[in-house]
Computed example of a mutant assay.
Amino acid sequence: MSYTKITETPSNHDNLEQLDTAVLLQKMNEEDKKVADAVALAIPQITELVDALAERFEKGGRLFYIGAGTSGRLGILDASEIPPTYGMPHERVVGLIAGGDIAIRKSVEHAEDDSQQAWSDLMVHEMTDLDVVVGIAASGTTPYVLGGIADAKKNGLLTAGITNNPGSPLAEVVDIPIEMNVGPEFVTGSTRMKSGTSQKLALNMISTALMIRIGRVKGNKMVHMQLSNNKLVDRGVRYVVEGLGISYDEAEQLLQKHGSVKEAIAAGKS
């Protein structure tokens, strides 16, 4: 199927080097305002993915993100924040990037062009049919992502794709296409900008809604967060104070004893 590669179309703005800083920033901001609306149009597909993930997670399934460059880094960022925020084991949400961990900080030449590597990277994790693979590629044409998705489907896994080119090869091959047309980038082809922002928003929505659906949030509180620093311990104590109507000192003792907000509140009510 033919499609327009919107991520490569010329910017709506030109002669950028002739603009002063305030005008540059204003025009970037004007473009950024379009992103949330583009993401909103994909909510039905994001809903379908979250519901499918929640069903599989309850049975021990996992979520894997695969991507290259900015897209890969955003997947890793989202995955890395799940354990401290929601107390989930690191292996339940995993981000993989073309070129391996070194590519998180430094570009690895031609890594994204290897269509076989993503499945090799996934197989390290002993994939099962309860797992879900989400490919992230602004262009929708990244070989690393397309190859990984194709192999995941062959092995019976549910697949989804996050892309900024509607009708792209990625959108065509996945089970659940999440297509967000944010329009041309401010700097032509620089998909770390609006495309990357839309991906970050979508990933926030997917993982946060999933964690809520599987019971990692109570009310609006992160009751399973890891108490890994003083700020988070203080936040946890305040959650316990609010949940039980007790003093700060009493709440702190409960939290230290039971190790999580959820367990501390449950103990306090028993």
Rank of each mutant, 00 (worst) to 15 (best):
S2G: 08
S2H: 06
T9R: 06
T9I: 05
T9K: 09
S11T: 12
S11Q: 12
H13G: 00
D14V: 14
L16I: 15
L19T: 08
V23M: 10
L24N: 02
Q26S: 14
M28D: 03
D32T: 01
K33C: 13
K34W: 02
A36M: 14
I43V: 15
I46W: 04
E48N: 15
V50Q: 09
D51V: 15
L53Y: 08
L63Q: 02
L63Y: 01
Y65P: 00
I66Y: 01
G67L: 01
G69E: 06
S71A: 14
R73T: 03
P83R: 11
P84E: 07
G87Q: 05
G87N: 07
M88C: 10
H90Q: 15
G100H: 10
A103G: 14
R105N: 13
S107Q: 14
S107I: 09
H110F: 15
D114H: 10
D114L: 12
Q116D: 13
Q117S: 13
W119V: 02
S120R: 13
H125G: 08
E126V: 04
E126K: 15
M127V: 13
D131K: 11
V133T: 02
V134P: 00
V134M: 03
G135P: 03
G135Y: 01
I136S: 01
A137D: 02
T141I: 04
K153R: 11
G156H: 07
T159G: 05
T163A: 08
T163R: 01
G167F: 08
G167Q: 09
P169K: 12
V173P: 00
D175K: 09
M180S: 04
V182I: 03
G183Q: 02
P184M: 05
E185S: 00
F186K: 01
T188A: 02
G189W: 00
G189M: 04
G189Y: 02
S190W: 04
S190E: 06
K194L: 09
S195L: 10
G196W: 04
S198R: 11
L201F: 04
L201Q: 10
L201W: 00
N204W: 04
S207Y: 09
S207T: 15
T208F: 07
A209F: 04
I212C: 13
R213W: 07
V217R: 05
K221A: 13
K221T: 12
M225T: 08
L227H: 07
L232D: 02
V233E: 06
R235N: 11
R235L: 11
R235G: 11
G236A: 08
R238M: 15
R238V: 10
Y239H: 14
I246G: 12
I246Q: 14
Y248W: 13
E250V: 11
A251V: 07
E252C: 01
E252P: 00
Q253M: 12
L255Q: 03
K257V: 06
G259P: 07
K262N: 06
E263F: 00
E263W: 00
A267H: 07
K269L: 15
K269M: 14
S270G: 15
